[in-house]
Design a protein around this nucleic acid. Structure first.
Length: 1098
RNA sequence: AGUCUCGUAGCUCAGCUGGUUAGAGCACUACACUGAUAAUGUAGGGGUCGGCGGUUCAAGUCCGCCCGAGACUACCA
């Protein structure tokens, strides 16, 4: 005979180990894929992690989400391949290698060859692969670790090239320039990552200047000349980088900002001027008392200069006005410069409310410059010094980049020049936070640098359209965060000046007039062949497509000139965004596989990937395939420590995932992460929560299984009998089966909707509140009591079905325990044809089993029982003491019908003999009436308040009338309303003379009269209880027959006179003897009654 | 600085399209139960629903502003 496995205690880590070994041995993961048809795929893309760092607890979070939906869809019968992958390129890898080798980027090419450097990177990038694979297995994350895609492999690179070529052929790739942080001292651009390194931003004191830009008087600006003082009209703008002023080509104002024109004198030249600045910032540059000064008595020697406001206008009024170039060294050729434009970034936080725009030296400047067709001037070279055209400053460094002993600030000299020329309104030192190059510690410049771009902005609208078809979880990440980002999409800067990454496959002639983009190795070989012939070379196709080998390749243009590769590598985000294609080496091979696996049904990563992987996947798919790359995407939140603080090594609050898994097991960790908060909310990871999940959910479920297996083994229940139809099962069986089917329906829907939290919580509530705490508790006797009857079999079948279904429903989130439970059940019965729950299918809902009326009346039963128990408690009447009756006022016939069907359950649960229904006619019940705000509010509107007061004041007679007639005419403020019982909530309030308890619309009263017979029965129950305790402490088997001897006592004698058979049956006693002494244990039955009881095996 | 999210009991979270005693679990206290027992039941304390204003007969729920936390983006004259 097969037995259910029994255990000494719940040991989740041991279950993990056992199940893991089983999966391994039986290749369950492989089977779970191969047993499903290729025609019914659920496509999942794994976002590649970088294995050059250790995995953290947050990876367990994201991977649980990934894993659970893949497992769910497998259980829905779909084939879910999960190819793993590794992200191997990028700056973090380079930096790590440099740190380990103790070198800097400057040493590459001198101390270490690019070849060796890249070898180091290739080796470093997989450093923690073993650890990652280990975590993957231990947490139960099913992914194909044996055939992952790796972004540094030639085949991967080749696919990426093919995508680039595709874009190139669509004319979506161009070389342009953009403003980037640039270190003249180091001669290199800096990434934002480098700018965010600690210490990059430093407080420095710079010379700041407010320059006066003289307006050109014409039709547009005429309104500013209508009323003005002596001298010219100027707009004033503030800058902390006066060296950018020669490159000024525009001024920006805020559309809605108020500006004023004032009459005053220039503080340096003392010449009369008219200045325009933001009204709000007037106080920053002028003191109040200056406004009160008299112009007529002003002399240039006066310390305080008078001013007066002449005119006010909005920024919008200033738009388009032209001004004289401030320092006319060179004029821009690429646009219509020296105009006032509007910009949304202009604020009145500081300065003058007018921003000096030098498009070459600021990202905002560049952007608004382009938008408005303003030209640009770049009068500083890459070394950081002024070009020759800036005659009087030519060759001077704008910051001290050379550590010159006698460096003189250009900012100061420019300011002096402006002062002298009546072009400066104010010059002063200003302290601010400015980024510095982390290698040279010199201030960086924002400088236009050559880069290759993808013209993503061309496809902006299509990307927005496609995005609207994607199901985002949570929706706001897609609609708001990602949506807004797409609306303002800029071109994608592909270029990175680095060493370890995918080389840009574009070759160009020296002048850049001819170029070619390579889309495959075959194409490269053909072009090399061509070049060899034309140029007399003997190049071979490199075996490794990385630098430096690829840089040696020289190609030839149509007209026979040499072409060399553009030096850049591409952005690593393009690497990872290419994975749908490159993981299959598409289109060079695997076309069919690709077609079956694109786009993805589901992906999942952290929210931080919104503009990272989520974007790069979306952009590439939109541009290359005119398709989404994924249909459903879950973005997970952060995992913080229990105080809501980000985990960091520095704070020492990092949770080691391996430790957690080893101590608590994977399932409680996964379950906790899924059910404590929605995965897209930040999770405050508290290990106590994992403990709680283990104890409450897994502990309860384990107990329920243990209970089941204990008695099923005794009775030899193997589910060999035919399934007993629900109609032949008891009320409570049908109830739990009804709930179970409701659960199947809901959990299935939640999983399908990517709502794992709701799914988990519902399963948990079913197990804890209903299955364990009500069904099993109430049915315990059915399992241990009596023969192997129809009813007992029904109970076993019911509990078995519940456990088996729970095992299935929970297994996506808790794959180990789910499988363990499933196997324990199934291996004893052989009912299902699967060796693992993960090969089984999710149960189908049996809609006919769902009985809402039944669920409702069981809810009544639970609430009524609870009320009775609370009354017992109040009256200090223990449950073992039987009571005669409970009084239950009924409000309608339906209620009585419902309660009647669960009467027996209630009575046995609360140990009461009968229920007496009280109807209205008895005149016992006092009723309470309340308005139903929901229905009445709509009808009454403004009169609601008065009506509520009126209704609360209705007397018993009125209430009865309403119930009887189902009609009430309400007169309020002269208006009349016809109401029905729907518009009221009527409940029993009290039963005069009785202790009552109520919960919502249910009220109960308890008859606490104790007759002798009730007392005797109570004693009998006490006896049973004491004897059972003795049995247990004597370590008797639950099936052992016993002999009982009880010390003589009147109370006992009275009780046993009626209840001896009952007691004997309950405790499996062959005989019960009353004797003078019994040599047994002394126990107290009720207050003041103690006897000795001896128990021996029969 | 911008965009987005969040703010409900000591802690972690529910609270549907606005409807009148704001819920659950944990923790705490007391009592009970004891053939699931490192479980279980009952009762109790504990909340200005971040603040202010508005819409409405009615606001935790809708709107505006502010405060606080976080994420991303940008880096500012």
């Amino acid at each position: 005979m097969s037995k259910y496995r029994e255990f000494k205690g719940l040991d989740l880590p041991a279950i993990d180990a056992e199940v893991l070994e089983f999966w391994n041995k039986e290749e369950i993961f492989k089977k779970s894929i191969e047993e499903r048809s290729k025609d019914n795929s659920f496509v999942f893309y794994e976002g590649p992690p970088s294995a050059n760092g250790k995995p953290g607890i947050h990876h367990v979070m994201a991977r649980t989400v990934k894993d659970l939906f893949c497992r769910y869809h497998t259980m829905k019968g779909e084939r879910v391949e999960r190819k793993g992958g590794w992200d191997t390129h990028g700056l973090p890898v380079e930096l790590k290698v440099e740190k380990e080798l103790g070198i800097t980027k400057d040493d590459i090419g001198t101390k270490i060859s690019i070849e060796d450097y890249n070898k180091e990177c290739r080796a470093a990038v997989m450093k923690f692969k073993g650890m990652w694979d280990d975590l993957t297995r231990k947490m139960g994350y099913w992914a194909d670790l044996d055939n992952p895609y790796i972004t540094f492999e030639n085949e991967y690179i080749e696919s990426v090239w093919n995508l680039l070529k595709n874009l190139y052929d669509q004319d979506l790739i161009y070389k342009g320039y953009t403003i980037q942080p640039y270190s003249p001292a180091a001669g290199t651009g800096l990434s934002s990552h480098e700018l965010n390194m600690p210490g990059a931003y430093q407080d420095v004191k710079d010379t700041s200047a407010v320059a006066q830009f003289q307006l050109i008087r014409n039709e547009q600006s005429e309104f500013l000349y209508a009323e003005k003082g002596e001298g010219e009209v100027y707009i004033i703008a503030w800058t902390t980088t006066p060296w950018t002023l020669p490159s000024n080509t525009a001024l920006a104002v805020g559309k809605k900002i108020d500006y004023v024109k004032i009459k005053t004198y220039n503080p340096y030249t003392k010449l009369p001027v008219n200045l325009i600045l933001a009204k709000e910032l007037l106080g920053k540059w002028f003191k109040l008392e200056q406004a009160e000064l008299d112009f007529d008595s002003y002399t240039p020697e006066d310390k305080l200069i008078p001013y007066v406001i002449l005119q006010e206008c909005k920024g919008a009024d200033l738009e388009g006005i032209r001004y004289e170039q401030l320092l006319p060294y060179v004029q821009p050729e690429d646009g219509d410069a020296f105009r006032v434009i509007t910009g949304d970034f202009v604020s009145t936080a500081d300065g003058t409310g007018i921003v000096h725009i030098a498009p070459s030296f600021g990202a905002d400047d560049m952007r608004v410059g382009k938008q408005n067709g303003i030209g640009s001037l770049t009068l500083v070279d890459k070394q950081g010094k002024f070009v020759d055209e800036v005659t009087d400053f030519a060759g001077r460094y704008v910051k001290d980049y050379q550590d010159e002993a006698d460096y003189r600030s250009v900012d100061i000299d420019i300011s002096i020049k402006l002062k002298e020329e009546n072009k400066a309104f104010n010059v002063q030192k200003y302290q601010h936070n400015y980024p510095h190059c982390w290698r040279t510690d010199k201030p960086i410049l924002y400088y236009p640098l050559d880069s290759w771009f993808i013209k993503a902005s061309d496809k902006r609208e299509r990307m927005v359209e496609l995005n609207n078809t994607i199901n985002w979880k949570p929706s706001h990440t897609g609609e708001k965060r990602f949506g807004n980002w797409l609306e303002n999409l800029q071109d994608w800067n592909l270029s990175r000046s680095r060493y370890w990454g995918i080389p840009l496959p574009i070759w160009r002639t020296a002048g850049g007039d001819a170029q070619i983009c390579i889309g495959s190795v075959a194409e490269l070989s053909a072009e090399i062949e061509k070049a060899n012939k034309a140029l007399g070379l003997s190049q071979n196709t490199p075996e490794d497509l990385h630098k430096p080998y690829i840089d040696d390749v020289i190609l030839v243009s149509e007209d026979g000139r040499e072409m060399r590769r553009e030096a850049d590598l591409i952005d690593v985000w393009f690497d990872s965004g290419s994975m749908p294609y490159a993981q299959w080496h598409y289109p060079m091979e695997n076309e069919e596989i690709f077609n079956n696996n694109f786009p993805a049904d589901f992906i999942c990563e952290g929210v931080d990937q919104t503009r990272g992987w989520f974007y790069s996947l979306h952009a590439i798919a939109s541009m290359v395939k005119d398709s989404v790359a994924y249909k459903n995407v879950v973005s997970t939140g952060l995992v913080l420590d229990k105080n809501g603080v980000k985990m960091s090594k520095r704070l020492g609050n990092v949770i080691d995932p391996f430790e957690t898994l080893a101590k608590y097991g994977a399932d409680p960790t996964r379950w906790y992460m899924m059910t404590n908060a929605q995965p897209w909310d930040n999770l405050k990871f508290d290990i106590a929560g994992v403990e709680e999940v283990k104890r409450k959910f897994f502990g309860t479920l384990y107990n329920t299984y243990s209970f089941f297996s204990l008695y099923a083994n005794i009775d030899g229940f193997e589910y060999k009998e035919d399934r007993i139809p629900l109609s032949e099962r008891t009320e409570i069986d049908r109830w739990i089966i009804s709930l179970l089917n409701t659960l199947i329906q809901e959990v299935d829907a939640e999983y399908a909707n990517y709502e794992p939290t709701n799914a988990g919580r519902k399963i948990q509530s079913f197990v804890e509140d209903h299955l364990s705490n009500w069904y099993v508790r109430l049915c315990r006797r059915r399992f241990w009591k009596g023969d192997y009857t129809h009813d007992k079999i029904a109970a076993y079948q019911t509990l078995y079905e519940c456990l088996n279904t729970v095992a299935k429903l929970m297994s996506p989130i808790a794959p180990f325990f789910g499988d363990w439970l499933y196997k324990n059940l199934n291996e004893a019965t052989g009912l299902e044809d699967h060796v693992s729950v993960h090969l089984s299918l999710l149960p189908e809902v049996d809609a006919t089993a769902i009985d809402k009326a039944l669920e409702q009346r069981m809810d009544y039963a639970q609430r009524i029982s609870s009320l009775v128990l609370s009354l017992r408690k109040k009256e200090k009447l223990r449950v073992r003491q039987p009571l005669q009756k409970v009084l239950l006022p009924i409000l309608d016939d339906k209620f009585q019908e419902q309660v009647d069907l669960v009467k027996d359950l209630i009575l046995s649960e609360v140990n009461i003999k009968e229920i007496e229904y009280l109807t209205d006619d008895d005149g016992f019940i006092k009723k309470k009436i309340k308005p139903n705000f929901k229905t009445l509010g709509r009808k009454l509107g403004k009169n609601m308040k008065a009506a509520a007061q009126h209704i609360n004041g209705l007397d018993q007679a009125a209430i009865s009338a309403i119930e009887k007639n189902n009609q009430y005419t309400l007169e309020i403020n002269g208006e009349s309303y016809e109401l029905t019982t729907e518009d009221f909530e009527i409940s029993a309030d009290e039963i005069p003379g009785w202790q009552v308890a109520s919960d919502g619309d249910i009220t109960v009263a308890l008859d606490i009269t104790l007759t002798d017979d009730l007392k005797n029965e109570g004693i009998a129950r006490e006896l049973v209880n004491r004897i059972q305790n003795i049995r247990k402490s004597s370590d008797f088997d639950v099936t052992d027959r016993i002999k009982v001897t009880i010390e003589s006592h009147d109370v006992v004698a009275a009780s046993l006179a009626d209840y001896q058979d009952y007691v004997a049956m309950e405790v499996l006693a062959d005989s019960i003897t009353q004797a003078a002494t019994s040599d047994g244990e002394s126990v107290e039955l009720v207050d003041g009654v103690s006897v000795q009881i001896a128990v021996a095996k029969a």
